[in-house]
Simulated assay, not measured.
Amino acid sequence: MPGMLDSHVHLMLNAAPNKSVYEDNWGYVGAQSVAAANQMLKRGYTTVRDMGGPVAGLQQAINENLVPGPRVLSSGPFISQTSGHGDLATSKFKISNSFTGIPDKAVLMGWSYVADGVPEVEKAAREVLRTGASQIKVMAGGGVSSYYDPLDTTQYTLEELKAIVAEAENWGTYVAVHAYTDRAVKMAIEAGVKSIEHGPFLTEETIKLMAENDIWLSPQALLFGMTPEQLKIVGTPSEPKMRKVNKESKTVLELAKQYGVKIAWGTDLFGPPGKQALQNQEFMARSRFWSNFEILQQATSNKQKC
């Protein structure tokens, strides 16, 4: 069935983040992304919101009919604080480019901008918008796939988030944040963020706040139900984080249904082709929480601002 929208994909991440960003040949990463876009289109997704990465070249090739793929709503490089979820270096002992002036490969290739303080985040937001991004993606809390930020961290200050939101609004667009916890999400809402990506640890109070403020939630029913064994991350720093997500995310979806939070269809199944091929299993995963009609609306007609 064509006409579906996946509002959380990473078309350039066709391996573990450290491999796609730092290890694999750049031409190979591009070839992988072309294949991934083609397969996603064949699965019925005619529009995708790419939530961070150097996807602009692939987007241009699709727009010029050079390669088959869905319409891409790019977020461009995601914005992260130092040591945040988007600080992609895999060593705790990396010498920061803030002090050496030597740019990180993630910055050079357009994966992410590590920015701290209001002036830096304003500049980073403007750089992202210059790439033609449809929206801005900000890392506002810890995550599973990053190496050294605990899941429950809150990232960025209210002033920094407000500065990024102001830049987005100046361009007639919005900010989406990666966030897991109440504290991070409440701060994002106060700053004017319109879309919360993930949110597996939110409480009833915060879910109600999202409903009252017309804030979108982009949850991943399938991914957050997958075990470390299924994801093949046993023995990595991500394993204990994923087990916590497995334990707590179910309640959030039940509360979101109860309070009528606006739900986006987002899968976030980046990685090898076999994992991405599970994309349509999100339908079955969501059937525990929503009716078939509601799920179809989420995947086709519940559109976030584009």
Rank of each mutant, 00 (worst) to 15 (best):
I79R: 00
T153H: 10
E229R: 15
N25I: 05
S287C: 07
K257L: 00
M284P: 00
M210K: 07
L296M: 13
G225V: 05
E160N: 09
L278P: 00
L231D: 01
A115N: 02
V29C: 14
A221L: 05
S145H: 12
G132T: 10
R183N: 08
L88R: 01
L255W: 14
S134L: 02
G30I: 09
I263H: 04
N246W: 09
T181F: 00
Y174M: 04
G199C: 03
H198A: 07
I95G: 00
G141D: 10
P103S: 11
G192M: 04
Q279A: 12
V252L: 07
V34C: 06
Y147T: 10
P103V: 12
T131M: 06
Y180S: 13
S83W: 13
L58W: 04
F93T: 13
E64G: 00
V21P: 04
M187I: 12
K208E: 03
R43W: 12
E159D: 14
Q276T: 07
I102A: 07
L108H: 08
F99R: 04
S7I: 01
H8I: 04
H178T: 11
Q279V: 15
L5R: 15
Q32T: 12
G101P: 10
D116H: 01
S7K: 03
W290A: 11
K92W: 10
I95T: 13
N63K: 14
I263F: 09
A163G: 06
P68T: 06
M226V: 04
A133T: 03
I95E: 13
G192Q: 07
L151Q: 02
W290V: 08
V121S: 02
A56R: 14
V144N: 04
Q60D: 05
T181V: 09
Q279H: 09
L108N: 08
T46S: 14
